[in-house]
Each structure stands twice: as C-alpha cells, then as structure tokens.
C-alpha cells in the first residue's frame, strides 16, 4: 500500500522543452510540487500553461531536460509505479473497432487482472460511468462524452491507489460532470490520491483540498482551496415580499428582483445586520443570507492578469 511518509507524486525543478536549438520552446520551467497520499489536488492554468506537458512527464511519456519527477518514489514511466496509477489522457479516443467491454478487458488485463476479476468488475464499472447498456457496442459509435466516460472507466478499472486525470471533465455534459463528481468524491473518501488538471474551476473548488496554479510553465501558487476562497466583505440576502408589496423600510436598501424573489447586496456588516432586522420586522420571508467569498475563478483570473501585466 501507499507509504504515507513519501509524496505519491513529486516534481522537482522540472524543465521540459519542445524542439531543439534556437527553436526550443520551454513548456515547463522549473516546476516543483508534491502531492501527498490521500490528497486531492487540482492543477489549473490557462491553455498552453504547461499542465498536460507536466502530467505527460510524470507519466513518462515525454522526457524532462532537467530536474526530476517521482511517482511512488520511482522515476516517471517505471512499470511498478504505473501499476498503482490510473491515468486519463487529455483527449480520450479509443480503438474504434473494439467494444467497451473488450477495451476494458485489454486495459485491465495489461494491469495484471485475471479473466475472472475482469468478468466481475467490468459490468459494474460500465454501470458506474453510465455505459451499462452500451458495453457491447463498437466504440466508433460512441459520442465524445461517452468516450470520456469510458476513459474514466479505463482509469479506474484496476482500482489504482492514485489517479492522474488530464482535463477531467472535457466533453462531458452536466449530468456526466455530476456523475463524475460523485465518483471522485467516493474515491476521495476511500483515501485515493487524486491529481487532476481542469478548466472547470467550480469543479476544482468543490473537489480539491489544494490547488496548484501554473502560468507560462511556472508555478504561480500552490495553496489549500480554503485559503484561496477568502471573504470579500460582501453580503447577500434573498427574500420574498408580502403579497407583492415591498415594505418601505426594506426599499431603502435598493433590492433587485430576481424572478419571484428579491436580492440585496450589501457591502458592510452593519448595513447587512440592519437589513436583516428590517426584513424580519416587516414580515418578509428570508430565504437565504450569506457572506460572499472570492471564487477560485476570480482568484485565477486576477493571478493571470497580474502575471500578464
């Protein structure tokens, strides 16, 4: 099992370049980070920031010019480390002339699973990713979203200790994303290590313990998600009026109508408390009140803009 004293995934001053000589382009520039056992870490960055290159280097698909990486304490691409990893590539396409069941038999078999294990695991796995009734169809008839679901199934088939997902929810519809989130939360609760890149920052916010942000090949921040979601000193109240009438003492806070409800946005705590009191006194039904926090998306955009300027 996982040795909890050493990081599951580790990169140290990793440098990866594409091209040679004068045309060499540095895609990853001195990246260092570590993912501990049982952590769920999001790897975010704009397009071309170096996310996929870093993940491919960790998997041993491409080679670093300098620096190093270790997976379970082993060099990238080591057969023994890959035995313990499930990987989802950025663009998931699978052999069009195979069936989903056959594909999982191939991948599971390469992971050393026996025929009996495969027979037992494949149907529930296909069910789990929403492909239960499509297992005997050729993959050429699969949509992009279905291919992505199958990609998740292939990554999970051997019940790996760690998961590396490149562009987690690419091509999935909202239901697919919801299903995927459920699967990942389940894996997280089982103590699996999850490291994934995604453009869906709400997903990262909901799932991850920590976020690593990369921009132009360099890590710009790596912090716990809770630390990034700081309060904005902004408050919001949602309420319903009485018989279509808005009490005068509430009107002074300038509420805005949103469908059948009213919303109040207040920029200091004192006004927020006064507004809540006024609503209670006038008999309005308060449906929600919260302190607004900076989203991961806001933070990400501010960081990227800062880096650009």
């Amino acid at each position: 099992m996982t040795d909890t004293t050493q990081p599951v995934i580790e990169a140290c001053e990793l440098v990866v370049e594409y091209g040679k000589g004068a045309q060499a382009r540095r895609a990853v520039d001195g990246v260092s980070f570590a993912v501990q056992a049982g952590e769920c870490v999001g790897f975010i960055g704009a397009n071309g920031a170096g996310k996929s290159t870093t993940l491919k280097t960790l998997m041993g698909f491409i080679f670093a010019q300098s620096g190093g990486a270790r997976i379970f304490g082993l060099p990238p691409g080591a057969v023994e480390s890959r035995r313990r990893i499930g990987y989802l590539p950025e663009v998931a396409l699978y052999y069009p002339f195979m069936k989903a069941r056959e594909l999982l038999e191939l991948y599971g078999g390469l992971h050393g699973m026996t025929r009996a294990q495969l027979r037992e695991k494949i149907p529930p796995m296909l069910e789990r990713v929403g492909l239960g009734e499509r297992g005997e169809e050729l993959l050429k008839s699969y949509s992009k979203g279905m291919q992505q679901r199958l990609g998740i199934a292939q990554a999970l088939i051997a019940d790996p200790e760690a998961l590396i997902f490149d562009e987690l929810s690419s091509g999935l519809d909202p239901i697919g994303r919801h299903d995927l989130r459920r699967v990942l939360l389940e894996l997280k609760s089982k103590g699996r290590t999850i490291f994934f890149s995604s453009h869906e920052l709400t997903e990262v916010e909901a799932l991850c313990d920590r976020v690593i942000m990369i921009h132009q090949g360099r890590i710009v921040t790596q912090k716990p998600v809770a630390e990034l979601l700081k309060p904005l000193n902004l408050f919001e109240i949602r309420f319903a009026d009485i018989n279509g009438e808005l009490p005068t003492e509430v009107k002074e806070f300038n509420p805005a109508r949103q469908g059948s409800e009213w919303t109040l946005r207040l920029d200091d705590l004192e006004r927020y408390t006064r507004a809540l009191d006024a609503l209670r006194r006038s008999g309005c039904e308060v449906r929600g009140a919260r302190s607004l926090t900076q989203s991961l998306e806001d933070y990400f955009i501010s960081l990227v803009e800062e880096a650009r300027s």
Partner: peptide, 9 residues
Amino acid sequence: YPLMARPIS
C-alpha cells in the same frame, strides 16, 4: 496514452 499508462514496457 491510455495504453502506455499501463504497467507495460
């Protein structure tokens, strides 16, 4: 990629 992510040389 998914193929070479397996524990095979």
